[in-house]
Design a protein around this nucleic acid. Sequence first.
DNA 1: TCTGACCTGCGA
DNA 2: TCGCAGGTCAGA
Length: 268
Amino acid sequence: MPELPEVETVRQQLLPLVKDRRITDVTVRAAKLLQNCDPEIFRGILSGRSITNIDRRGKYLIFDCGDAFAIFHLGMSGIFLNDRSRSRHPQHIHVDIEFDDHSAIYFQDVRKFGKIWLHDAYPQIPGLGIDPIAETISQAKFAELLASTSKNIKLFPMDQGYIAGIGNIYASEMLFTARISPYRKTDQLSPAEVAALYREMHAILQSAIENYGTTYSAYQTVDGASGDNQNFLKVYQLEGQPCSNCGSPIIKTILGSRSTFYCEECQA
DNA sequence: TCTGACCTGCGA
DNA sequence: TCGCAGGTCAGA
């Protein structure tokens, strides 16, 4: 759900709303979201501070308050809204952050899989691989990562320890446009296939960011709108529909306990 | 390396 | 009423 393009869209939309605004109050109604402090400490540390920047690493958003850093992971259904009235599920708004100009942002998470941390220094998120948009990964390094393991290629980009930010939707999509079967193993790809996957990973993510992310169920942009990228998907959730390339029906299978969509004819 | 639990809305 | 959706992590 919120994968790299959705989280990056949220970051870009949220930043002008909060940058250099002073936080006057923070309310956390679901304490289980907080991983390393309780709601009162979270409120006490952030109140009075200003958000100077929002960074993103993989699917994590990092609110930079100078000498305090709030890290949000949106889980599967987390969204930020700039107006409570835009919420389809107001009972699931778990965090309010209010500012000195009387504006506010709201964190909603229906399934409560989101997580929040508070740090006093810029956080190094443990076990997080390379973010292909925020950082530069060379094709040689990408090939090296692929060769270093022998896992199923569908599961490789979803493993945040290798590539940070990709989830189930974009893993299926990039394998389709790179024409690689989801059943192939990482260390058995030809150099041409590695090059195609490297190219398509960047192209798919960049294009999804330009389309404000994919709204399939829960994801909404900060102003409550849907993303556009679901209109450009080639295989995800298109089981039985004709492949845009060859007309064969799109196949759905389960890999790593996750739905996987592909074209048997186009993906070898 | 793989599987299931967490969680809740939604559609069949 | 029940199964599915999926990001992450603990446990097998």
